[in-house]
Structure formats: C-alpha cells, structure tokens
Design a protein around this nucleic acid. Structure first.
Length: 559
RNA sequence: GCCCCUGUAGUUUAGCUUGGAUAGAAUACGAGCUUGCGGAGCUUGUGACACAGGUUCAAAUCCUGUCGGGGGCGCCA
C-alpha cells in the first residue's frame, strides 16, 4: 500500500472513533507533501469540509511533519524534508544490497512454473515472457525471504509428438536433422498441419504414434528422446544468454508413471464420468466445460499431467504458493485444474495462482501460431539485439574493456526491460524496434544512468558519517523521498506479481537523478556540499543496482 | 452462440485494485543545451482518457449499454 492510502486509512479510522483525537502518523521515510481531501469525511460527520480540515490540522503530529495547512476542503501536509532525507540516507548506507528487502517470506517456499517451452519447436517469443517475468518474480520473492523453486515444465509429451513422429517418418531427413534440428522439426510440424487438410488419415496416424509412445514403444521413444535432446540443447543456449536457471527441469513426461494413480484418485472421489468413451470431470455447474482426463483411445491429456504435477509438487515442496507463469489463453485450463483440486478436497487449491500474461501478437495483431509456421525465433532476436548493442558500444565507448560482455548485458537488458516495463496482463504486438532501442524508457537507459553514477563514485566516495542535509535543495529532497519509496514499491510489485511496478519506479528515479546530474556538479571545492551530493549519488546508485538485479538485469559499472 | 481480457497523444504506454485539484512518461516531430563528474543524457514546444448513459460534491478510475481489438470454448498444449 502506498503512503497516500495508508494516510487516508489512518485519518478515516481516527475520525471514526473521535474527531478530536490526536492523530499520530508513524515515521515514514516516503512521507511527502500531500493533500488530503476532506469531502467524504465531511459528509460522514455532517460538517463542512473546511471545518473538518481545520479540526484535523490542529490534531496531527508526525516525526517528519513541518506544518499542516488548510486550503479549500483539502488538508495540506508539508514535510520536514531535512529530517526525512537524513533518515533515508542513513538507512540506505547501512543496509546496502539489502535495502528494500524483508523477511516476510521466511521459511516459506514458492514454486514457480515458468518458461515451459515445447520441445521440438523453436524457443518462441511467447515463452520469453513467461521466462523473464517468472525470473523477475523469482528475484523479488527471494528478496522478500521466500525460498523459490523454479520449475521448467517442458512441453515434452502429448499428441503433437505422435504427429511429429508421423511427419518425420514420412518426410524426415537424418542429415538435415543433424545439421539444423530445430528448423527441420519445425518444418515437419508445419508440413504435417498443411498436409492433414488433404489427408485427414494423418491425424489418426499421429494419435496412434502418441499412443505407442505412451505404451513405451521402443522406436517411438527413441525418436522422441532424440527430438527432446536437440531441443534442450537449443533452449540452454537461450537460458544462458538471459541468465536464467531452474531448480527443476522436469517436463510433462516426468509424470507418466503417476497418471493412472492420479485418475484413480479422481475416481475414488466420485468425480469421474464416462462420456463417448473418454473420462472426464463434469464442471458444468461451475460454469466451465468438462475437464477431460483420458481420451477414448486411453491416452492422457495436458490437464491429466498438470494435475499429477500439482499433486507431486505439493508433496515434494510443501509450497506456500504455486505460481503458474503462463499465457492468458490458458486461463480456462487453470480454472479447471484448480477446480478439480478443490473438488478433490485440497484446500491448498487457493495457493495456486495463474499469473497470466498477455500474448505476443504478430504484426497483423493476431496470435502467433506455430502450426501455421508463424513464429519468431528468440535466438535470432537475441543475436540481432546483441550485435547492435556491440556496434553501439564500439561507437560510444571505444576504449572500453570487455566489450562483448557489456554488449550482451546491454542487449539482454533491453529485451528484459522492454517486456518488464509494461503490465504483464496486456497483449504485446511484436516489434523488433522495441527490443533494439536503447534510448528513452529502456533497460540501457537505466544501465547508463547507473554507470554514470558509478563513474563519479570511482573518483571520490562518501567518507563522512554525518551528512548536512540542509545543503539539499528541493530536487535533491525529492530524489531522496523517491529512494525512500523503494521498499514499498518492491513489496507492491511482489504482492501483485507485477514487476512493471518496480520497472516504472526505476525509470522515475533515473529521470530524477539524470536531471540532478546535469544541474548539480558533484565533485567540487566545498567539502560538505561534495559529501552531501556524493551521498545522494551513492544511495541512488545503490537503489538502481538493487532494482535492476531484481528485474534480472545486470547493473553495469561501465558501458 | 457463450465465456474471459482489453480500448488513454501519430505510435508504445503509466495511472484503474483503494474515485479527489492542471492525466504522467517514452517515441516521433519542432526549438535549445557539449570550454563541469560519461550527450545511451538534459531543458523546452505541439499532442490523448472509444462513445452514450448512470452513481457521486467529485469519474480515466466504479456500474450499465453500444462500438472496436484480442483470447478461449471435452478427445492440442
């Protein structure tokens, strides 16, 4: 909750008890000048707003409060800026990398199901969102003291592999598969879906191959394993670039031996229904379509495996929360999954959250569908961005060491931030220019700001314990106020599973400090002023560093 | 047909959960700032709440409807 809401709540509560009570506002580093409208209070207490404001103004006390003023129906608070700034400086300089963290998640485990690409397909831009949002959430939750288990739930099982085997049998080429597995497999997948329109019998063949796969048929398994290995090697390259790791990489196939038991559990609970040869849970009275667990040919489905996975994870990790960082188009699937868990009597269904994100759409504004061959290769996008970053590094800072490393951090930073700075629930139209832009509201802008501050701090540093905060002007006090907000922002972003709240905050802070940078020389003759400004630079640098790391972006010292 | 999400400058967007005073950025376009710590920066101008009702002293925010966009709807994942 931000300060504004806290204050409103406090005033309302206090007023409800007794209008004449003395209001003690607790110490609050983020406290800022603020206007509180008294209209709704006026109505409640049947007085006019100005009267209420005047009554309140006499009764309020707070550590950083300089004065309270009444204007119209508004109560204006003015803050003792020097005291507030001093408090912020002390805290940040003391807590450093830990500034903004908390221990609320101590002893609790959170499982995040994230990334989860489908094997035998290229790592598409769609899975990028899941990967980087999941990764940011992981950092945020860890910062709040949670133990986080990141699970890459690979899409490595299902009818699609039957189809793929069918296609490979018909049109596959061993040499091409060796040389460029991902593209070849994609071609086969697309060809299958175009051919199936002319030859519907292929559909049936695909299904039967999947059935054979589930029955551990040797040839089916051999091909499947081959496809899986090639894909994993490809995915790992991308994870390495993005700096993402997992505690568990299991995939749907991992649950194969638990599926019969899972279906039996559902049956024991009296939930299983037979319909046209298939087994399902009827969810009609909950306003959903039925949840299909076994096809008429006996093969299982996505939901069956996800159900088994949820049960397994609860048993294995005893999680306090399980987050599914998966696209919004699967909303119904997760509603069904959670409902079945509930019907099975598991109270922890409430701890399962579908942290959904909007889709990446093609330039036509429609969904990117692999089947139609409409897909963007993440590998290419990453390479292109990093190459461009490399070119710009060369141009802007030719004397820099480790240019490749920096170019990678900048390119990846641009991509990560480009996604994280907007609300995850909204759809995004893919535009390569958004990723390859390094100016304005971008990751590199933050990295650059951070690097410039580091550059000053390399020359001189904070040595004084006591900083004279009376030397600060309004802009500098404002910046320190913003610094004081950091903890609240991090908490907000974590609770709502929305990293963009933090990303936006960092942009604001960077804008403020850049504006300071051009107008306030830091290094200068007068020692007290220099120390005061160095301290300001130091705390902002620290917050930018902490913030960037929480988003999974490298805070470079030089670039 | 039914269900869910969504509509803010030319473009990308923040603000909507918890209604308050002139709706905040970025980009593009226009005008400036380099003899000071890194110009990937800074200053400044033009420009926006889809429409119609309702609730309220007060609506981008809450409710209803219309229109536009996206997604989903038992043998895909």
């Amino acid at each position: 909750m931000d300060f504004k809401s806290k204050l409103a709540l406090l005033l309302k509560k206090a007023l409800k008890k007794d209008v004449s009570a003395l209001l003690e506002i607790p110490p609050e580093p983020a406290l800022g000048d603020y206007s509180f409208p008294c209209f709704s209070l006026a109505k409640t207490f049947k007085k006019n707003p100005v009267q209420i404001a005047q009554e309140l103004s006499k009764k309020i006390k707070a550590p950083f409060l300089a004065k309270v003023e009444v204007r119209g129906g508004y109560l204006n608070f003015f803050i003792a800026k020097e005291q507030r700034s001093a408090a912020v400086l002390t805290t940040v300089l003391k807590e450093k990398e830990g500034y903004g963290s908390s221990t609320e998640g101590k002893g609790k485990t959170v499982v995040i199901d994230m990334s989860s690409p489908n094997i035998a397909k290229p790592f598409g831009i769609g899975h990028l969102r899941s990967t980087i949002i999941g990764n940011a959430l992981r950092h945020l939750l860890t910062f709040q003291g949670y133990k986080v288990v990141r699970i890459n739930h690979l899409g490595d099982w299902g009818t699609q592999f039957g189809k793929l085997i069918t296609a490979y049998k018909q049109w596959g080429n061993t040499v091409r598969l060796e040389k460029d597995p991902i593209h070849h497999l994609l071609d086969l997948y697309v060809k299958f879906h175009t051919e199936v329109e002319q030859h519907p019998e292929l559909e049936e063949e695909g299904r039967s191959w999947f059935k054979r796969l589930e029955e551990q048929d040797a040839e089916a398994l051999r091909l499947w394993k081959k496809f899986r290995d090639y894909s994993l090697a490809n995915f790992n390259k991308i994870y390495q670039l993005l700096g993402v790791h997992f505690e568990e990489i299991s995939g749907e196939s991992f649950y194969n031996d638990q599926l019969d038991a899972t279906i039996q559990l559902v049956e024991k609970a009296g939930l299983l229904k037979k319909s046209e040869g298939a087994l399902l849970v009827d969810l009609e009275k909950f306003g959903m379509t039925s949840a299909l667990l076994r096809k008429k040919d006996g093969a299982t489905l996505y939901l069956t495996r996800d159900l088994a996975a949820a049960l397994y994870r609860k048993k294995t990790y005893q999680f306090a929360k399980m987050l599914y960082e998966v696209g919004a188009e699967q909303q119904l699937h997760f509603q069904q999954l959670f409902k079945v868990l509930e019907l099975l009597g598991h109270k922890w269904h409430r701890d399962c959250v579908h942290v959904s994100h909007g889709l990446y759409l093609g330039s036509d504004g429609k969904k990117l569908a692999t089947r139609a061959g409409k897909i963007i290769f993440m590998e290419d996008v990453l390479q292109e961005t990093i190459t461009l970053a490399r070119k710009i590094v060369e141009e802007k800072n030719p004397g820099l060491k480790e240019k490749d490393k920096v170019a990678r951090a900048v390119g990846v930073g641009a991509i990560l931030f480009g996604d994280l700075c907007n609300d995850r629930t909204k759809d995004v139209v893919f535009d390569i220019h958004k990723f390859t832009s390094f100016e304005g509201e971008t990751g590199p802008y933050l990295q650059y700001t951070h690097a410039r501050l580091c550059s000053i701090l390399r020359k001189k540093t904070v040595t004084e314990k006591k900083i004279d905060c009376s030397l600060y002007d309004n802009l500098e006090h404002e910046i320190l106020k913003q610094v004081g907000h950091f903890g609240d922002v991090v908490q907000d972003a974590t609770q709502q599973y929305k990293p963009h709240i933090l990303a936006r905050y960092l942009l604001d802070l960077a804008q403020q400090i850049n504006s300071f940078y051009v107008s306030h020389p830091v290094l200068q003759e007068k020692k007290e002023l220099e120390q005061a400004r160095l301290a300001l630079v130091k705390v902002v640098q620290q917050v930018l560093q902490n913030g960037l790391r929480l988003l999974g972006i490298e805070a470079l010292e030089e670039m």
